[in-house]
Simulated assay, not measured.
Amino acid sequence: MSVVIVAGGRRWPLRHGQDPVDLLAEQGLTGQPVRSVLGADGCVEVHYAVEALDEAVPGPELGMAGRGATVLRRVAAYALVLDGAQLLVSRLAAWVGGGAGGLWTLPGGGVDPYEEPRDAVVREVHEETGQHVEVGDLVQVQSTHHVDADEDFHAVRLVYLAHCPQPQAARVVEIDGSTGAAAWVSLDRLSDLPQTAMIGTALPHLPAEVGRAGAADRDRET
């Protein structure tokens, strides 16, 4: 599924491995994501509120896959879900490849063809953690690109804030999926977990008052 950046009535396709920040900079723009929708053409549209940069900057050079390499694109949607100062996380099953097996990450997963990304968040969070959530703002677009002789893989990850009206003990609902466990983890204990880079990259997008609440909890413990 392809991703298109939309701003000021204009559209730009997100290239393999390209960060949306770099794409906007090529157009002399900077901005923040405000929403994502599934376009009529089947592309995920990520809409940005933008303003002009002082000058445009060139985009990064992209790596080249080997001849005959499998080209894979994946658009996925994830959630930052809080209950007080506890973050909802899921652990990847041991069999997951790429060195990620057994690591903790944000709940979420692939957007099905023609599925609204917010609906994917609701579905995936329930499958992986047993929680029913209400999806809020799109706060981050992560883009990663892996190239070797056999594979050209581009992953675009949409990260949303989400609210869980009735938090329950986290449990994996899906059967034979890629999730091995789920848990609510205190923010000040996250660093103790073996985790993917996604968590650390997304945490700065938590509301500021959450950080203050977590600091207050740590002060009470000491």
Rank of each mutant, 00 (worst) to 15 (best):
V3E: 00
V4C: 02
V4D: 04
V4L: 08
V4K: 09
I5A: 10
V6F: 03
L14M: 10
R15L: 15
G17F: 04
G17D: 05
Q18R: 11
Q18T: 13
Q18H: 09
D19R: 15
P20S: 04
P20H: 02
D22Y: 09
L23R: 07
L24A: 07
A25D: 01
E26M: 15
G28F: 07
Q32I: 14
Q32M: 13
P33G: 02
V34K: 09
S36Y: 04
G42W: 08
G42Y: 10
C43I: 00
C43P: 00
V44L: 02
V46H: 03
V46T: 07
H47I: 14
A49M: 13
V50A: 04
V50R: 02
E51F: 10
A56M: 02
A56R: 07
A56C: 00
V57I: 11
V57K: 12
V57F: 10
L62I: 12
A65Q: 01
A65S: 11
G66W: 08
R73L: 11
A77Q: 01
Y78F: 15
L82K: 03
A85R: 08
L87Y: 10
V89I: 13
S90P: 06
R91A: 07
R91C: 08
A93E: 05
A94Y: 03
V96P: 01
G98Y: 08
A100C: 09
A100P: 01
L103P: 01
L103D: 00
L103F: 06
W104G: 01
T105F: 03
L106N: 01
G110V: 15
D112R: 15
E115Q: 14
P117K: 03
D119A: 14
A120D: 00
A120K: 01
V122G: 02
V122P: 01
V122Y: 02
E124I: 04
E124H: 10
H126T: 02
E128V: 08
T129P: 05
T129L: 06
G130R: 05
H132D: 13
V133I: 08
V133T: 02
V133D: 03
E134C: 08
L138G: 02
T144E: 08
H146F: 14
H146M: 09
A149P: 00
D150P: 00
D150S: 14
D150E: 13
D152R: 14
F153P: 00
H154N: 15
V156E: 00
R157Y: 04
L161I: 11
H163S: 12
H163R: 14
P165R: 05
P165K: 06
R171Q: 11
V173T: 07
T179N: 00
A181I: 08
A182L: 11
A183D: 05
V185W: 04
L187W: 01
D188S: 12
L190Q: 03
L193V: 06
A197C: 06
I199N: 01
I199V: 15
I199C: 02
G200I: 04
T201R: 11
A202F: 03
H205M: 12
H205F: 15
H205N: 11
L206S: 01
E209V: 15
E209Y: 14
R212V: 13
A213D: 06
A216W: 07
D217M: 11
R220M: 09
